[in-house]
Amino acid sequence: MFSFCTDPASLPQLEWFACYLTTGKHMAFYGSFLVVLLLLLVTAPVALAFGFGGAMAARARFAPLRWFGKGYTAVVRGVPDIAFFMFFVIALDQGIEWLRHKIRCPDWEQPIRQGNDFVVCAQAKMPLSNAAQWVHEAYGFTLAVLTFSIVFGAFAANVLFGAMRAVPRAQVETAEAYGMTHRQAFWRITVPQMWIYALPGLSNLWMILIKATPLLFLLGVEDIVYWARELGGAKTSAYSYPHPDWRLWYFLALLVFYLGLTRVSEIVLGRITARLSHGQATLGGQALRKGAG
C-alpha cells in the first residue's frame, strides 16, 4: 500500500501498523464487511416477500395453497437454522446440477452417484469449473441469500399472518359494507393497516438476521468472522507481519461493528414505528393523537 512497506520487519511501530492494516488480506477483511451489509440489504426484502407470500398462502381459501403456506412456516421454523443451512444448501446445489445434467448431457451413461461421489458431466457443473473465482463466490453468495430468505421468510410469514388477523375486524366489515370485494378489502384495508402490528415482530427478525450473518461462514462465504479468525491467529515469520494471538482484538472489532449496526437499526425502526402509528387504534397511535391535540 505505502511505499515504505517493502521491509516490514525494520519499521517502527506506527508505520508497521499502517502497513499491516493495509495488506491485501486486510483489504479482503474490510471488503467482507460490505459483503455482510450487502447480504442484509438483499436478504431483508426477499425474505419479506417470501413472508408476505407465505402469509397470503396460509390465509388462502383454496385448501392446497393454505396447506403449503402453513407447511412452509411450520417446517422451516421447526428445523434448527444450522441443520437447515447445511442440508438445504447441499441439496439445492446438487439438485441444480442434477437438473442441468439431465438437460445438457442426456447421453451420459455413468451413474451420478458413484459411492460417495456426486458426479455430473463437466457442462452441468454449477458454476462451470473453468468459471472465474468471483463467479463461484457470487454463486455461493446467491445460495446464501436464498437460504437466509427462506428461513427468515418463514418467520416473517408467521408474523405477517398474525398481523393480518390483528387488523380490527370492524375495518374489514366496513370495507365489505362499502361493496369492496374480498381482494379489494385485503389490499386497500388490511395490508396498509397491518404493518403497525407486524413491526415489533419484523424488527425482532431484522435484529436476529443481523446476528445470524456469521452463519455465512458455514456456507463457505468468506465473511468477517472467517477473516477475523484468520487474521487474528498467531503468525510466525512465514508471514511478512508476524504477531502473537490477536483474535481478541479482531473479535472485539466485530462486536463493535455488530453493536453499531443494531443500534442504528433500533433508531431507524423507532422512527418507522412512530410513522406507522399515525391514526391507528393502538397505544402508540393514541399517544400520538394526545400529543398532537
Partner: peptide, 8 residues
C-alpha cells in the same frame, strides 16, 4: 499452505 499477506 497458508494465506499470505496479499490474501493469496
Amino acid at each position: 499452505n497458508f494465506i499470505n499477506d496479499n490474501g493469496e
